[in-house]
């Protein structure tokens, strides 16, 4: 009897997972929010810290207008770079390794949920995770700057998972 109840509950949970955000938002959110007990080291050699170079007020040159790169997406409360997003960063690394006069700003962003202060730190951590990956791909650290906004600059002003997914991102702005 007990077993039946357990498997019934399990069934409901699985159903909720399959239905996703439409029917059972809270379960979906809980799972997303609780991710990351295992932290994946940044970069290829087990990660590490790459101190940021000195910051000059003003932009490092003129915006590069002839290329654009896709934003990197993140899971809720996570700064880990998903395998699906690595190609986007590799494309930038490839471009920057061929164009040595280009500097990139990585702008980290969060969705609107949660503490604004924590979100500012989290968005910066996202930008720095992308930066660490770029560095591991051979781009010099002094060509990769971060500029994070927390939840202050959403792309999509909606209040659903579809909007939140758009807003959890690292954007690239290239200057020459």
């Amino acid at each position: 009897m007990k077993k039946t109840i357990v498997s019934a509950v399990f069934g409901v949970v699985v159903c909720c997972l399959l239905i996703g955000s439409s029917g059972c938002t809270s379960v979906d959110e809980e799972l997303l929010g609780a991710d990351g007990d295992v932290l994946i080291p940044l970069g290829v050699d087990g990660g590490g810290e790459f101190p940021l170079g000195p910051r000059a007020d003003g932009l490092p040159g003129e915006p590069v207008a002839d290329v654009a790169f896709d934003s990197v997406a993140f899971l809720y409360d996570s700064f880990q770079i998903a395998d699906s997003e690595r190609g986007k960063i590799e494309a930038i690394a490839d471009y920057m390794n061929r164009n040595h006069d280009v500097t990139v700003y990585i702008d980290g962003h969060c969705d609107e949920r949660g503490s604004r202060e924590y979100n500012l730190s989290l968005s910066e951590h996202r930008a720095l995770a992308i930066r660490a990956y770029l560095i591991s791909l051979g781009v010099a650290g002094n060509r990769v700057l971060t500029r994070s906004f927390g939840e202050e600059q959403p792309l999509d002003l909606g209040h659903r998972e579809s909007a939140w997914r758009q807003n959890r991102r690292g954007e690239f702005e290239l200057y020459r």
């Binding site: 101190p51 730190s121 910066e124 720095l128």
Partner: peptide, 9 residues
């Protein structure tokens, strides 16, 4: 305060 100058917040 929180700073990220050394590579993470």
């Amino acid at each position: 305060l929180a700073l990220s100058k050394d590579g993470n917040p």
